[in-house]
């Protein structure tokens, strides 16, 4: 991978980051009651208002306010949660690992399973198994994730007792070591599966379409004419090219995935960001909400960047342009 390619991609990220910060700034200023209420709550605490006014330069002209605000945000200073009285970033950081564990498991699992299923279906296009995969993907892609979660709870957890119903750990269970990890894994399985299902559907559909298109390509005929095995042609030749759009889609879905994570967390009582997010909506705890929004946006931007780099690795024509 050439350094110039990486550098160019990094440069392109900057305006996006600036835009996202600007959106947060705009929302705060458009909010009823103005920026001070949005940033410091409606407690009426004049001393705190004065402190926040100074901190964010709210008595200065708008461009200067924007600069101050952007500086604070980029340094990770999102203000103080006025419900908890602690820096917003600390409050968010506490809940983040659980959410990332759930989302990360689903992302990795769905990418692998989706690509495998899609390629498997495409290898026998229009067969029974292809029909089964395509229809399942169509239904899963349409089903709302909370509903899938509720159905999974009803059938797999409540009826059979195979899986725990709520939470991330068993109350009074092991708190360290392998036993703890296994306990978490057992709690993780069902929510991760539900969260992954829609992503699996999306990835499988796209992989299948891509592989089918590639299998019709001249270079695949060349590979077959060389005497390569079907499996090798499918995996090394067709799938490699078909992965290009798949990578794009996987890379463009973290926003979607994190939204799904919030919803699944509610269904399974998973102790991630969801509860914090919902209480913050009730209490209008803007620093927290803004923090989560910026965090998710940053994740999406980062994912796009990684996608582009992977893309360049998969397609030399882009790398050397």
């Amino acid at each position: 991978m050439t350094g110039r390619y990486v550098g160019r991609r990094l440069l392109q990220v900057l305006p996006t980051v600036a835009g996202i910060v600007l959106v947060g700034f705009l929302l705060i200023h458009l909010a009823p009651g103005g920026p001070i209420i949005a940033l410091a709550g409606d407690s009426g605490d004049e001393e705190y208002y004065a402190f926040m006014t100074a901190k964010f330069g709210l008595d200065r002209p708008l461009p200067e306010q924007l600069a101050t605000y952007a500086g604070n945000v980029l340094r990770g200073d999102l203000g103080v949660s006025y419900i908890q009285g602690r820096p917003a970033i600390d409050v968010i950081a506490e809940r983040l690992p659980a959410t990332l564990l759930l989302a990360g498991t689903a992302l990795v699992g769905s990418s692998v399973a989706g690509v495998a299923l899609g390629a498997w279906a495409a290898a026998r296009a229009h067969s029974i198994r292809d029909l089964a995969v395509t229809s399942a993907a169509l239904v899963l892609y349409a089903a709302p994730v909370f509903w899938l979660g509720q159905l999974a709870l009803l059938t797999l957890a409540l009826r059979t007792g195979l899986f725990p119903v709520q939470g991330m750990t068993t109350a009074g269970g092991p708190e360290t070591g392998l036993a703890w990890a296994l306990d978490v894994a057992r709690h993780l399985a069902l929510p991760a599966l539900v969260l992954a299902s829609q992503e699996v559907a999306a990835v499988a559909r796209l992989t299948r379409a891509g592989v089918l298109e590639e299998l019709a390509a001249d270079h695949v005929r060349t590979a077959l004419a060389k005497g390569l095995s079907d499996r090798r042609v499918l995996v090394r030749h067709a799938l490699r090219r078909a992965l290009l759009p798949v990578v794009t889609v996987i890379g463009s879905r973290p926003g979607h995935l994190l939204a799904g994570t919030i919803v699944v967390e509610v269904v399974f009582g998973w102790p991630g960001l969801s509860r914090l997010l919902l209480t913050s909506v009730q209490t209008r705890d803007t620093p927290i909400l803004l923090g989560i929004f910026l965090l998710v946006a940053a994740t999406v931007v980062l994912a796009n960047l990684v996608t582009d780099l992977v893309y360049g690795w998969l397609d030399p024509r882009i790398r050397y342009r």
């Binding site: 390509a217 001249d218 270079h219 005929r221 060349t222 590979a223 077959l224 004419a225 060389k226 005497g227 390569l228 095995s229 090394r236 030749h237 490699r240 090219r241 998969l314 397609d315 030399p316 024509r317």
Partner: peptide, 24 residues
Amino acid sequence: LRAVRGKRVAMVFQNPMTSLHPAL
């Protein structure tokens, strides 16, 4: 048949622009 293809019978195709894999 696969053992024959590319070993005893080999083929050159029409369009060299598309007949090679672009990413290998």
